[in-house]
Design a protein around this nucleic acid. Sequence first.
DNA 1: AAAATAAGTTAGTCTGGCCTAACTTTTTGC
DNA 2: GCAAAAAGTTAGGCCAGACTAACTTATTTT
Lengths: 236, 236
Amino acid sequence: MSAAREVTETETLSGPAEDYLKAIYAIGKGTGPAATNEIAQRLAIAPASVSGMVRRLADQGLLAYERYHGVKLTESGRRAALRTLRRHRVIEAYLSQALGYPWDRVHVEAERLEHAASDELVDRMAATIGEPEVDPHGAPIPTREGSVDETEYTSLAQLDVGASGVVVRVSDEDPEMLRYLAELSILPGKKVTVKSRAPYDGPITLSVGRQELSIGPALAANVLIAPLADRGGRRG
Amino acid sequence: MSAAREVTETETLSGPAEDYLKAIYAIGKGTGPAATNEIAQRLAIAPASVSGMVRRLADQGLLAYERYHGVKLTESGRRAALRTLRRHRVIEAYLSQALGYPWDRVHVEAERLEHAASDELVDRMAATIGEPEVDPHGAPIPTREGSVDETEYTSLAQLDVGASGVVVRVSDEDPEMLRYLAELSILPGKKVTVKSRAPYDGPITLSVGRQELSIGPALAANVLIAPLADRGGRRG
DNA sequence: AAAATAAGTTAGTCTGGCCTAACTTTTTGC
DNA sequence: GCAAAAAGTTAGGCCAGACTAACTTATTTT
């Protein structure tokens, strides 16, 4: 797997520019298109501001942009996004494992550090904690070479009654939700089984370890599961 | 020594603003005045740019500014400068001790991280490596409460022939110089003795451990010494 | 004390990145 | 297929922080 080392290329992106690329990557899952409005919403800025930045990024060859029709990452843009994503997730993992940072706050701190940390620092962090493959919320860490595990998982909200699975990942941005999930012990690696599901998008009852508990579908949608093959699986 | 915890106050300074305060602190040794030109030179920007920023910082109560007559830090400005200095030096110490960062590169990395790292992160770093009192170059680390050791040391260039001292600190900004000093094993904690000094600002011969070597006065000026009382001491 | 030099400031410009308001294009719903 | 709604863009501002060029104030030299 020793791929050729990627050339460092541009390397001089502003913090905001990196945030745009990350957002576009997240929206399009790496390769898909991203709408102006959605970028604006993710970054909490006005749509008009997005148009301007998007043009600049397109000029730098990072985006494919067609007026009135959203944007896509170019190959070079995708690589830049993955570099930032790697930084973010390595930093999260490092803060958590090496400094005992609480998992509901690593995201915010990493958001700020990811634009300042050098690749060397990030690589040293990764090496120090044993080249982690996922961040504390279960998100896969892109490699130095720019590849990333793109497996799509089922959300807990979609798991059939009776089905079991292992929690692989939870959404990382909402500290309060993270604290709540930790309280319920819904954490990456835990096995969960769906016991029942109330109609009309009602609460979902599930068991985690020896506990039985009930959560709403909105929360369940933020918990990604690797289904176990003991009974059932997905549900359309 | 458990002083009352400082109030966090403003907390929202830009990166450049923090750099200005650090520079002004360095020039005035904390309390003295700083000249516009010298600030400009340290930050590698035009003097005209300094006038503008200095006005903004004065408006925020961080500087005492009198047109055409340089600036001084206010108490609040001094505290802000020391917060940044603490961040910088804790980060340097952490990079060096926890991540094996080479000492000639910690400065550059810390310059970028010091504006992004939260106080919580810096405090965790400090705690993890045992609350260090100096950074890898021997510079004292300000406390959380904003006090700092202001002892002034003699430079190696000023040490009398025959006098000995312990290296306490070396200048941290020039990586090449740091590599050279390390090569000569002129490092914080090492004992040195001046053997001879050539006239007209000529080379200084000294012994470090069992080695004997010769350095120029420009380099010697960047090495601060705590004199030992075995023979001689300073020289005017 | 006047002239020369150095230091510092203002004026005006630029870029990045954001904003609101007004306009245009695309999509949607009937 | 056309009108309303949604999405996206341009125009025009603003702020921070840098720049150069031109000017003012301080300091030094003679």
